[in-house]
């Protein structure tokens, strides 16, 4: 059956062969689905021609309305998953700006993975390049995305076998090279993102516990913060299968970065304390204490 087109429908986009090639149909349908919905959450009239060419009407729905169901499902599913992963960013931007950014991002990048978990993998790049969408909180937005993406990675990222303590004990520091678990992300931040996400979690918990008693919907308050006077060094990691944030001393942060970059323990320590104000005797104590913690948390691997 070839497409039937009524006068009210837009021009049918012809396929070069009939029946059309499977790939041509799928490309055409993808093009329609990935067009953002209208303000009223409907399919854009721009898709009318494709709808008429692809889909038959029935006694209740037009071709347009039938294809619209898939267009809506596509956007609601992607926006839902995106919103779950970047709740902090939504808190920073507010719902309206967040929706605008989400649609612009998904329109530009779409999904290139079978796993919805990967949906936000290009978001940091996108918010860095599209500061108009996050102004006047562009820097805060970038840092929030960094931390929220790090949280996704920490949840189910690769875990390597922890380093053997014997190896550390028997290898001279100038030859000892250690690595950091791939699921850990180290970040240097201007804003206290960990505190902001803590606030958001508390707010969500409170709104859940008040859900029955509070009839009036609460206004969603935006997350606001000023940059700190000093940089915050944060590790996003997991322990006992849960994701945590851990603030680090600047020297500890530099030490971990140097180890991650493949430097020997000796070189990493030199790098870490190069401009440090810590006294040497304190530095030694600190390094011992940090390593004890990192070993306990399983952060170090061979």
């Amino acid at each position: 059956m070839k497409p039937r087109v009524t006068a009210s429908q837009a021009t049918v986009i012809p396929f070069p062969t009939w029946p059309p090639k499977l790939a041509a149909i799928q490309r055409s349908m993808l093009q329609v689905l990935s067009r953002p919905l209208t303000r009223a959450d409907g399919m854009t009239p721009d898709s009318a021609a494709e709808a008429a060419a692809l889909v038959t009407p029935n006694d209740r729905l037009t071709s347009f309305e039938r294809l619209q169901i898939y267009n809506q499902q596509y956007w609601w599913r992607l926006l839902g998953a995106f919103g779950e992963d970047f709740r902090g960013l939504r808190g920073v931007l507010g719902q309206r700006k967040f929706d605008k950014l989400a649609i612009a991002y998904l329109k530009e990048y779409g999904s290139t993975s079978w796993n919805l978990r990967d949906l936000g993998q290009h978001l940091e790049k996108f918010v860095r390049e599209n500061t108009a969408l996050t102004a006047p909180d562009a820097r805060l937005a970038v840092e929030m995305v960094q931390v929220e993406w790090a949280r996704v990675e920490a949840f189910d990222g690769t875990e390597k076998p922890a380093v053997d303590p014997q190896k550390i004990a028997r290898t001279p520091p100038d030859r000892l090279r250690l690595s950091l678990q791939p699921y850990i992300t180290l970040l240097e931040l201007e804003y206290p993102i960990d505190d902001l996400l803590g606030k958001l979690k508390k707010r969500d918990t409170e709104s859940l516990s008040n859900a029955v008693s509070n009839d009036r919907p609460q206004r969603s308050r935006r997350l606001v913060a000023k940059p700190g006077s000093t940089r915050i060094h944060l590790a996003v990691h997991r322990a006992d299968y849960s994701v945590y944030f851990k603030r680090l001393d600047p020297e500890a942060y530099r030490l971990l970065i140097a180890l991650k970059n493949g430097q020997s323990l000796e070189a990493a320590c030199e790098e870490a304390f190069r401009n440090s104000t810590q006294l040497p005797e304190n530095a030694i104590q600190n390094v011992q204490s940090w390593f004890a913690t990192w070993m306990r948390l399983g952060w170090l691997c061979a």
């Binding site: 029946p19 059309p20 090639k21 499977l22 790939a23 149909i25 799928q26 490309r27 349908m29 993808l30 689905l33 990935s34 898939y70 499902q73 596509y74 599913r77 992607l78 998953a81 779409g110 999904s111 290139t112 993975s113 079978w114 919805l116």
Partner: peptide, 25 residues
């Protein structure tokens, strides 16, 4: 069903036209 083409994923279970080419693929 189908759900991706040219490396772009829809994350949906999309219907396919019931054609002989679709059967073959």
């Amino acid at each position: 069903c189908w759900g991706s083409i040219d490396g772009r994923y829809t994350h949906d279970l999309l219907p396919v036209p019931y054609t002989w080419e679709a059967i073959e693929k």
